[in-house]
Each structure stands twice: as structure tokens, then as C-alpha cells.
Design a protein around this nucleic acid. Structure first.
Lengths: 229, 229
DNA sequence: CGGCCGATTGAGGCTTATCAAGGCCGGTGG
DNA sequence: CCACCGGCCTTGATAAGCCTCAATCGGCCG
């Protein structure tokens, strides 16, 4: 696959490109890097200085970080059109998480300084970015509340809803992503065994359906009722 | 106490006023509301539409929200100069938390629309707001990681550090705020009994010192080492 | 001085993590 | 084509950590 051009990008409608003048599009198109990666591959390692902004051109990724005793946590899931790098705007420039490809993916990146220039030159984009970061903050606080007050069963339900929010097919209820039990556990902050048991229960209760590796949410409302909001 | 005027406010150096032109200061001064409240009082109730931005003029507050089964959680602590209301920028306009005064306090508020106008008219303020919200997001993610991966003892340590970050006196190590064991538990997401036990341990180990209702951090580094970062 | 509220400390029980055994594929090689 | 292997998933037993409950203590205020 060769690097796409920004003018005809299928992500033209995303937060950033949508609000760029022709001149800025040209600059970005010229300056951008293009990165391809295979399923499972580490794209950005934890701990490096955050000098780039990344845009997911294609595919799905997970953003993880590792805590005490090597305990893994999946902080966020992202897909085509999403942006990675805003957290670098806070004083600390070190990237505090790793990004892995959940399937074959492709990303574009531009230098952080270039993005900052673009922000300054484009008030509308700045405002959109503020709203974007704010809504991430709100979502993070909701997840925090769920993960710290709910029991295991409820946390697994909440996590399924989160995965559905990002990767779910509203028509079929299918979670169109391949996550292992271990990965679901790292979203729900529990163990793979507990996830397994909860999924079995949910299936018996008719709330979800499994079909090989596929997962369908049959009664998202029933899951919703188990969580806080 | 009568309403202060914005030109001579002791918070003139805060995020907002610092970046206001004289004209805007006049408008804000004229449009602002001034609210006083006693210790323990509910200032903003959960669930109301978010139509105002609040600035803490004086005092200390806690921002709490209640989860399933009435379980309380303290999401954030704030003090003089801090701003409450950015979360209203996300699509959902409902305020998802309550604000209580931890001591006698005073707040100024302005209409959300006025603040939005001010933002649009002032790119520098917009950018500062973006950085502010981003750093809140980063801090929230760090707390989330701590509260979901650490054991009780470590969570209590982390919570003491958080309180210290907001209300701590760097010179003496004193946490200059009066929080009950129950409130500390709602920060650490555990029970008041566990907090009590951990504090006793920490004191025996020389990490903290209690003096009546006062709390001093003697070895913040030792507490730090127990957490993730 | 008595009563009340919050803090402390200990005992018991519940939830959840850990460990272990067995099952179900998908891939590989004979 | 089939046997074998390895990885992941499932399920049950066990153990540890934490919450809940209860009793006691201590300070504060009337």
C-alpha cells in the first residue's frame, strides 16, 4: 500500500482534515508520514517522547499501559479516523501508554509542532479539539466510576458496552473486533477466568450470543441496566 | 462579604482573568454572579443542566458523584482559582456530579454562553483551556490506573498524595484540609475502616504524622514508591 | 459529667483472584 | 488423512484480600 494523499483521503471528514484550508492540506500532505503495521504489532512504545500526532487511517488499535507488578490495562480502543497524541499537550511529554494494532492497520503522523501551528491558525479546529478532549475526559470519568464501584459481573457488562460503542455494528449487534478473554479482562480490570464465567452467564441469560470467535450483543439495554448510567 | 470586582480580584492571575482584555473584564465583572456557602453545604447538585461556569474565589470544594447502590465517589478536589464547568462542553449538558464546600467558600459564576463567546474571542484562552482539560485527562487516567490496579494500602497512599497535590503545604507537608476517614475512603475507593488501618500503619512506619485532626506527610517519596508512577 | 459522633481495632464472611484440570479448536507434520 | 501439538477457553476448587459488622475508645460540646 502506498501513502494516500490527503485530498482524496476517505477520512477527509474527520475532525482535522474537515477543517483544513487547501493550503494547510497541502502542507500536511507533504509533511506526513505513513505507517503500516500487522496485527498484534507494537506501533508506539510506552515511555518515548511524544513528538508526533497520529491519525488512524485504517484498522483498529488498543492503547495499553502497564501498572505495578506488570499488570496490563487497556485504557482505550480506537479506530479509523481517531487521533492519538492530544495527551502530549499536557506538560509532561512522555507517552505513558503503548499502542498495539488489533488488526492490520495504517496510520498517518505529523510532527507535533506542525499540528500546534495548525491549531493556532485554525480556531475552529482548536475549539473542536477542546470539545474532543473534553468528551474523552467525560467518558474516562464515567469508566472510572464504573470500574471502581461495580462488581465483576457489572464491570464485564460495562466493558462489552464500551467495546460496542467503539467497534459495534448497530444493525447486527456484532462486536466487529477480535479480542481475547485476556484483553477483555484488561478492559474490565479483572481476570480472563472471570470474563469467561460472566460471558457464559450472559449467554445463558440471552443477553449475548457467541458464534465461534464472534460476539453479539442481543440485549444491550439489559447490560446497560447493570451499570451506573 | 460583598461581591468582589474582577479588576482587583486576588485571582487575577488565574487561567481566565489573566488572558482577558479590559473590555471583557468589564463584561464579566458586570455579568458575574457571586455565591457564598458554608462548610458542608451543597453548592451544585448532580443532574441539573450545566448552564454556568464556576470559578472558586475562595475556599475548598469536593466534586462527588454517586454510583450504584448509593456508593459515593469523590472525583476531584478543587480550590481557589480552579474552574468548574468544562465538562459541560461535551455533548451531554447534564452535570454528572455534585459540588460540596469543604470549608466556607465563595464562587463566581458566569453564563456558559458568555464563557463560550469569551473563548471564541480569545484564542490564547482557548489554547490554555485545551491544555487545562488535557492535563485533567492525563491526571484522571493516572488515577484510574492507580485505583484499578493497586491494592488498598497502595490506593490509600496514592490518595494521600493526591490530596497533598491539591491542598498540601510543601514546606510543612501538612494537608491543609479537613477530610473525614469516610471522605478519604471515597477518594481511595475503599472503606473508612481500611483507611483507618492504613493510616495507623503509615504512622507506625514513620511515613505520616497525625496531630489531632491534622495530617502531615513525612515521607511523600515512600508513599510515591508504592504507586504506579 | 454525660452523650454523641467519628475513629480505631478485631472477628467473620463474601467476593474475587489464583491455581489446576480438561476441552476445543487450528495448524503442522508424518 | 489423521495424529499430534500448542494456544486459548472453560469450569471447578482453593485461598487471599477486602468489606461488613460490632465493640470499644477518644474527643468535643452542651
Amino acid at each position: 500500500m502506498k501513502a494516500p494523499d490527503c485530498f482524496n483521503c476517505h477520512c477527509r471528514d474527520c475532525t482535522i482534515l474537515k477543517r483544513c484550508s487547501k493550503e494547510w492540506l497541502e502542507i500536511i500532505d507533504k509533511e506526513k508520514n505513513f505507517i503500516r503495521c500487522k496485527k498484534g504489532q507494537l506501533i508506539i512504545p510506552e515511555g518515548i517522547p511524544m513528538s508526533q500526532f497520529y491519525f488512524i487511517y485504517q484498522g483498529k488499535v488498543k492503547i495499553t499501559s502497564v501498572g505495578l507488578y506488570g499488570k496490563q490495562q487497556i485504557k482505550r480502543l480506537a479506530k479509523e479516523g481517531d487521533i492519538i497524541g492530544f495527551r502530549g499537550l499536557a506538560s509532561n511529554n512522555i507517552f505513558s501508554a503503548s499502542v498495539y494494532a488489533l488488526e492490520d492497520s495504517a496510520l498517518c503522523s505529523i510532527n507535533k509542532d506542525l499540528f500546534l501551528d495548525l491549531l493556532q491558525a485554525n480556531p475552529e479546529l482548536m475549539f473542536e479539539s477542546l470539545k474532543l478532549v473534553t468528551s474523552e475526559l467525560v467518558r474516562m470519568e464515567r469508566r472510572m466510576k464504573n470500574l471502581t464501584t461495580l462488581n465483576v459481573r457489572e464491570k464485564v457488562a460495562e466493558s462489552l458496552l464500551y467495546v460496542n460503542e467503539v467497534f459495534g455494528n448497530p444493525a447486527t449487534g456484532e462486536l466487529e473486533v477480535c479480542l481475547s478473554r485476556q484483553e477483555l479482562a484488561e478492559i474490565a480490570m479483572t481476570t480472563k477466568e472471570q470474563v469467561s464465567k460472566c460471558l457464559s452467564e450472559f449467554e445463558q441469560e440471552g443477553k449475548i450470543r457467541t458464534e465461534g470467535k464472534k460476539l453479539f450483543l442481543l440485549q444491550p439495554d439489559a447490560l446497560q441496566k447493570m451499570t451506573c448510567d
